[in-house]
Design a protein around this nucleic acid. Structure first.
Lengths: 200, 200
DNA sequence: TTTGGCATGTAATCCGTTACATGATTAG
DNA sequence: CTAATCATGTAACGGATTACATGCCAAA
C-alpha cells in the first residue's frame, strides 16, 4: 500500500481556518506553521485542483479587484474527510537529523567542526525560542477572542519545549567535547568552521 | 540544483565504524541509530554498488563460510569524502509533525480524539525514554574502552532530551484540553457537523 | 522604469518506501 | 520439514523540492 498523502490534509486543514488562495496558503504556512509543517507551491496548486475535482473544496475565481485569483473554501464533504483523518492515530515522525548523524560519526572529523556545528545549532535554537515565545505571548493575550488560538498555543508550546531541549543538549554536548586550543571559541559567537561552505 | 543525497554519507559513516555487509548495515541502523536516522534496503544496496563504482568503498565477496555475501570497507578516498562532508554545516531538519498538525486543526475534531493522540504519544515517548536511558547507562560503563561510545552517547542524549521534552509537552497539553466527560470542545465554538461524529 | 510582491502553474529530478523476487542456511 | 533468519537485489509508485515560466499590479 502506498503511504497516505498528508499534503492533502494539510491543505484541507488550512482551509478549515478560513478560505484562502494557494498563494495565501503558502504565506500562512511560512508565518505560522513552518516550524512543524511545510508545503511548496509544487504541491499546493496541484493538490488544490485535485481536491476541487473531488468536490472537497470549492474554488471561486475573483476577477474583480486586483489579480485573477482563485479562493478556495472547504465543502461539507471536505470537512468530513478532514474530520475523519483527524481521528486517526498519527504516525510517528520519521527523523533524519543531520546534525546528530554528524556528531555520531565524530571520530572521523575534528572537534572544531563538531563544536562549530553545535554552536550554530545553539544560536539557531535560541533565536527560534525567542520567536516562539513572542508568538506565545501574543496568543495568550487573545485566547478568549479567537478559539483557534488555544490550538495554535499547543502547537507553539511544542516548538518551545523542543528548542529548550535542543539548547540544553547543545550546551551539554559542547561540554562533553574537548575544547579547541589556539582558537577563540567564545560561546554564542557566530561560528566559523574549517570546512567548505555549502551552496544553497 | 538537486539536493544532496544523504544516504550516501550515512552509508560511508557506518562503514567508518567497521566493515559491514548491506544486511548488517540495516541491522545496525535498526538497533543503534534508528531514532535519528533510517535507511531501507531499497537505498542501501544500490548505494553500496554506486559507491563501489566510485571507489569510495571496496567490496570483498565472501564465498566461504556461510552465504554468498559482500562485505564493504571504506577506501582512503571514501574516508576523505566522509571527512569533507562532516565539516559542512548541517542543514536544519525539516519537520513534518503529524501529531502537532492534528492538534493545530483541533477545532475540527473532538477533544476525545486529541486527548487520545496525546496519550498515545506520551506512552510511546515514555517507552523510548526508558530504552534510551538503558543505552546511556550501557555506554557510560565502557567509555574508556570504546572511543566511539563518546559520540554514541552524545547522540543518545539528544534522544533523551527530546523524549523528555515530548513527555512534558504532552502532559501540559492534556491539562490544557478539556476532559472527555463533558465532550464539549471549546466554549463558544460553533457546532460544525450536523451528523453524528463517528468514533474510531 | 524598474523592482518587488501577488498569483498560478509545469517539468525535471530525485528521494524513499513498499512490495516483490530469489535463494541459502539454520534452528525447532 | 518448516519456519525464521541471512542475504541481495529490482520495480513501481508516489512524495517533495527546485527551477522554470508567465504575467499583472503597485510603489519607488
Amino acid at each position: 500500500m502506498p503511504r497516505e498523502n498528508k499534503t492533502r490534509y494539510a491543505v484541507l486543514g488550512l482551509l478549515s481556518l478560513k478560505p484562502m488562495t494557494g498563494y495565501e496558503m503558502k504565506g500562512l504556512i511560512a508565518q505560522s506553521v513552518a516550524y512543524f509543517w511545510n508545503e511548496s507551491f509544487g504541491q499546493i496548486y496541484p493538490m488544490l485542483n485535485q481536491l476541487a475535482q473531488e468536490k472537497l473544496v470549492e474554488g471561486i475565481e475573483e476577477t474583480e479587484g486586483r489579480h485573477n485569483r482563485t479562493r478556495y473554501t472547504l465543502t461539507e464533504k471536505g470537512h468530513q474527510v478532514l474530520h475523519d483523518w483527524l481521528a486517526i492515530t498519527p504516525e510517528a515522525v520519521s527523523f533524519r537529523d543531520e546534525l546528530v548523524l554528524k556528531l555520531f560519526f565524530g571520530q572521523e572529523t575534528t572537534s572544531a567542526s563538531l563544536r562549530s556545528h553545535l554552536e550554530n545549532a545553539l544560536a539557531a535554537s535560541r533565536a527560534k525560542l525567542e520567536t516562539y515565545q513572542g508568538i506565545e505571548a501574543h496568543l495568550r493575550g487573545r485566547l478568549d477572542a479567537h478559539p483557534q488560538h488555544k490550538f495554535s498555543l499547543i502547537a507553539v508550546r511544542k516548538g518551545i519545549h523542543w528548542e529548550q531541549a535542543m539548547i540544553a543538549w547543545c550546551l551539554e554536548s559542547l561540554t562533553a567535547l574537548p575544547p579547541v586550543i589556539g582558537q577563540k571559541n567564545t560561546p554564542g559567537s557566530p561560528a566559523k568552521h574549517s570546512g567548505k561552505t555549502q551552496r544553497k
